[in-house]
Amino acid sequence: MSILWAIIAGLVIGLLAKLVIPGRQPIPLWLTVVLGIVGGLIGNALAGAFGVADTSGVDWIRHAFQIGAAALLIMLVTPFWSRRGA
């Protein structure tokens, strides 16, 4: 069941990351999910390093780290994916 939650979280994180990046990112949904999952893992590690991984209530800072990491990954991967078809 944890794999299913990772996929769902990756989808949400990846789509939110695509929303904060200006312009269009012509990458497929499966790649958005994968980058969202990886961004979520990187964001969790960053939140742990900064000591904000577990707070009372909603962990907004951890979620911001996750979305930011996924956005950075999407911005790095998109040019390579676009050139792949050329």
Rank of each mutant, 00 (worst) to 15 (best):
Ala70Lys: 01
Ala53Tyr: 10
Leu76His: 05
Gly51Arg: 04
Gly39Asp: 13
Trp30Gly: 07
Gly43Ser: 06
Val52Ser: 13
Ile7His: 03
Leu73Ser: 01
Val20Gly: 02
Pro22Asp: 06
Pro79Asn: 06
Gly68Tyr: 15
Leu15Ala: 11
Gly14Asn: 02
Gly57Tyr: 08
Ala6Trp: 13
Ile13Ala: 00
Ile13Gly: 00
Arg24Ser: 14
Asn44His: 13
Leu16Trp: 11
Ser56Met: 14
Thr78Ser: 07
Ser2Thr: 12
Leu29Ile: 07
Asp54Gly: 13
Leu15Lys: 13
Pro28Asp: 15
Gly57Ser: 02
Leu4Gly: 06
Phe80Ile: 11
Ala53Lys: 12
Leu11Trp: 05
Lys18His: 04
Ala53Trp: 15
Leu35Ile: 05
Met75Phe: 12
Gly51His: 11
Asp54Asn: 12
Pro28Cys: 08
Thr78Pro: 00
Ile3His: 12
Pro26Ala: 06
Ile3Asp: 14
Ala6Cys: 12
Ala64Gln: 05
Phe80Leu: 10
Arg83Ile: 05
Val34Gly: 13
Ala71Met: 02
Leu15His: 10
Gly23Gln: 10
Leu11Tyr: 13
Leu19Val: 07
Trp5Pro: 06
Val58Ala: 03
Pro26Phe: 12
Leu31Ser: 11
Ile7Leu: 10
Met1Ala: 13
Trp81Ile: 15
Ser56Ile: 05
Leu76Phe: 12
Gly39Gln: 03
Ile27Glu: 10
Gly14Met: 01
Asp59Gly: 10
